[in-house]
């Protein structure tokens, strides 16, 4: 749900990073936080366990600049990846404008990626969204790992609607901004249609 405020001339968009545990969701927004200039970024809020596992969500507000005289602000959220946090994941999807699915390229995690996409579809549906038409990007992360599966195989297993597919090494920042941009583009183009 995009919040367009004509009084303060602001557009707020909520983007959710989704994916299995340890695929690199938090790393994506940590990198964006480190890289963004201080006047653009808000505080990175992490509700994490003592061992740095996301407990509820990470949150990063970003001021992107102006479009058509409106200030554009993105609110980035990550979900906790572990299977047993499903109730929290569903809550975080509430009112989202776009989803970035972060896949873990390691061969051993292929199954976990597939399960997580299925889980995303269910949780989106419960929030009144359709995974087939919401702004959506597939990020193939951890491309640097020696155990990563070939690109073609990942595409065949995980890509289902010709969505933008971006290779990434999140802890090095590779592909991170490109992914966000691909999602932002779809959201803003959607505003145009509605």
């Amino acid at each position: 749900m995009t919040f367009i405020n004509y009084a303060s001339r602001e557009i707020n968009c909520k983007i959710v990073y989704y994916g299995p545990g340890l695929c690199g969701k938090t790393t994506n927004i940590q990198w964006i936080h480190e890289q963004a200039s201080p006047e653009k970024r808000g505080k990175l809020v992490s509700l994490a366990t003592e061992t740095d596992r996301t407990l509820f969500f990470d949150f990063l507000p970003l001021d992107m600049g102006m479009v058509k005289g409106f200030k554009v602000r993105f609110h980035l959220y990550t979900v906790p990846g572990q299977v047993f946090y499903d109730a929290s994941r569903k809550l975080i999807l509430r009112g989202c404008d776009g989803v970035i699915f972060v896949a873990d390229s390691q061969r051993a995690r292929l199954e976990a990626n597939i399960e997580s996409i299925a889980n995303l579809a269910t949780n989106l549906k419960d929030n009144g969204f359709d995974i087939r038409n919401i702004p959506y990007v597939l990020q193939l992360n951890k491309r640097d790992m020696p155990t990563s599966a070939p690109l073609g195989e990942m595409e065949r297993l995980l890509r289902f609607r010709n969505e933008p597919m971006i290779e990434a090494v999140a802890n090095k920042g590779t592909g991170v901004i490109e992914t966000l941009k691909a999602c932002a583009r779809q959201i803003l183009m959607d505003l145009q249609r509605n």
Binding site: V67, F70, M189, L191, N194
Partner: peptide, 22 residues
């Protein structure tokens, strides 16, 4: 009837989006 309400975002271009990302 969405037509009555003129969206200011009816003409967003790729360039606008590039600009957001600097």
């Amino acid at each position: 009837e969405s037509s009555k309400f003129e969206s200011p975002f009816s003409e967003i271009t790729d360039e606008d989006i590039d600009k957001l990302f600097g």
